[in-house]
Design a protein around this nucleic acid. Structure first.
Lengths: 144, 144
DNA sequence: CTTGATGCAAATGGTTTGCATGTTT
DNA sequence: AAACATGCAAACCATTTGCATCAAG
């Protein structure tokens, strides 16, 4: 089941949409691949990308992420307070995050299966839950 | 089951925490009550509050909302891009939002009950889902 | 009277944009 | 060459903050 998405896969998907393949897009995708299931902010990506090419401007990272999101390759998550975070769309998952200590539990992509069924049946709504975050208290903090 | 929350109820909850009851807090709570299940942005609230008292500054609305959120009376819903939105905590609910047309379906506060149980059992995580948003396509847009 | 709340103006910080230039196709 | 992407600097906008003043307890 481990879909091994490669950089070339992703670039090919871009090309096939008519989007151009540029240095910035290649580097950003490479970094998101390297990030695995971790999330990256635009600035976090910029820092890493700069190690390979210091010319890439932060504004380009933002524009690049927009394009990648539009192409369905990248998911923008974590709108809460600070900076938005991004990860590859191939990395479907959800999170339970501790309000107190920030601990993160990863939930499988089917965590909302029952709810999805219910929305379909009751409202004809085709839910596509992407990176939903459930707040609460982790085992440690709830007892503390 | 219709908990009728009154303005005085809410103010009393504030007092009992030791927070002061001020003009701004009274007016903001009144507007949130009047809003029913609709959400209001800080500016939306400011506009309405100004009809009763033009002296209340926008920054005060923000500070007020912080306090009210801290007191557990108000929930900050912060949708995707623009400004954060707020509503009374007594109005617990979640949303399914159509990616295409923006249609909103309200979900009852217990929509995640099963998941909450599972997180507790499997991880000892005490989930408190607050205003979770599930993206997808509404009945109209999915067929279009 | 003491502590906390507010008005105001100015700062912040993440993100976006206009435009001239460089790059991909 | 044509269309598009980028660097840069400047604009944006929601939100926050410092400080002197004012109001609630």
């Amino acid at each position: 089941m481990g879909h091994h998405v490669t950089l070339d896969d992703l670039l090919e998907q871009l090309r096939s949409r008519g989007d151009r393949v540029t240095v910035a897009r290649r580097l950003v995708l490479a970094e998101l691949l390297a990030a695995g299931s971790e999330h990256r902010t635009a600035e976090g990506l910029a820092d890493r990308v700069h190690r390979r090419d210091p010319e890439v401007h932060l504004s380009t990272i933002y524009r690049t992420l927009d394009v990648l999101e539009g192409a369905g390759l990248v998911v923008r998550a974590g709108f809460g307070d600070g900076a938005a975070t991004y990860h590859l769309a191939s990395d479907h998952h959800h999170h339970a995050v501790c309000d107190s200590c920030g601990a993160v539990i990863e939930l499988p992509s089917d965590a909302f299966a029952a709810l999805v069924r219910r929305l379909d049946r009751d409202h004809g709504f085709a839910a596509r839950p992407r990176h939903v975050t459930i707040p609460g208290l982790c085992a440690d903090c709830r007892s503390a």
